[in-house]
Amino acid sequence: MDVLPWLVVPAAYLLGGLSAGYWLVRLRTGTDVRTVGSGATGATNAARALGRGGFALVLLLDAIKGALAVLTARVAGLHGGWEFTAAVAVVAGHIWPVQLGFRGGRGLGPLLGAWLALAPLAIGVCLLVAGVTWAITRRRVPSGLFGAFLLPFTTWWQTQSVPATACTAVTFCLVAFAHRNHLHPGATQARPAARTT
């Protein structure tokens, strides 16, 4: 049991680095998705080459790897916050994949999948808030980030766990850092740096 976290958490990081957007665009067009558009490997940038169906497929696959990482931790018997640590690792691996020279996506896809498995009520509230915010503002990235900002609070509400809440806060910070180009005055969704997953 003492050894398992040191196996499962690095494995979650490596899983996060398996970029669906990178490989699907490479197989479909022969292009490195990191050389076009925003340079991200997530669903938004991949959709430039793959279309709407590609966006949905990449987002789904990114969410699945997030869920798979935390479910693997649970199957391995990890608890007490270790399953949330695996979630941090899979998101970090998505953003900074060693397999792709530490140039990946922005983390929202695996975050979504991981928290659907870990704390579905918590992420559900955040998705609802993000959806309402988007309906009012029509600004996708800020709406998604606002929903993600609430996730540590809703995770505490659902779990009452300090380790879970702390890991959630760390994960939000990773995603916010990856979206830092959207966090200064004058940032717009139309800028080339925009990527959301």
Rank of each mutant, 00 (worst) to 15 (best):
D2T: 12
L4D: 11
P5D: 09
W6Y: 15
W6S: 15
L7A: 02
P10K: 02
A11H: 02
L14P: 11
G16Q: 02
W23E: 15
V25F: 12
L27T: 10
T29L: 14
R34E: 13
T35D: 13
G37R: 12
G39P: 03
T41N: 06
G42W: 10
A43H: 05
R52W: 05
R52F: 10
F55E: 09
L57G: 04
L60I: 14
L61T: 05
L61W: 10
L61A: 06
L61G: 08
D62Y: 15
G66H: 02
A67N: 01
A69M: 11
T72H: 07
T72P: 03
R74P: 05
V75A: 15
G77K: 00
G77M: 01
E83C: 00
T85K: 06
T85H: 08
T85G: 14
V88M: 12
A92Q: 07
G93V: 11
H94V: 11
H94M: 09
I95S: 02
W96T: 02
Q99K: 08
G104F: 01
G105V: 10
G105F: 07
L112D: 02
G113M: 07
W115M: 01
L116E: 07
A117I: 03
L118M: 11
A119L: 07
A122S: 05
I123L: 14
I123Y: 10
L127S: 02
V129G: 05
V132N: 01
A135H: 07
I136H: 08
T137V: 09
T137S: 14
R140K: 10
P142N: 00
S143Y: 01
F146V: 04
A148I: 07
F149W: 03
F149R: 03
L151C: 03
L151G: 04
F153V: 14
T155N: 07
Q158K: 08
Q160S: 15
S161V: 04
V162W: 12
A166L: 13
A169M: 13
A169T: 12
F172M: 14
F172T: 02
V175F: 08
F177R: 08
F177W: 15
H179R: 08
R180A: 15
L183P: 00
A190H: 06
P192E: 15
A194D: 11
R195W: 09
T196Q: 13
T197Q: 12
T197D: 13
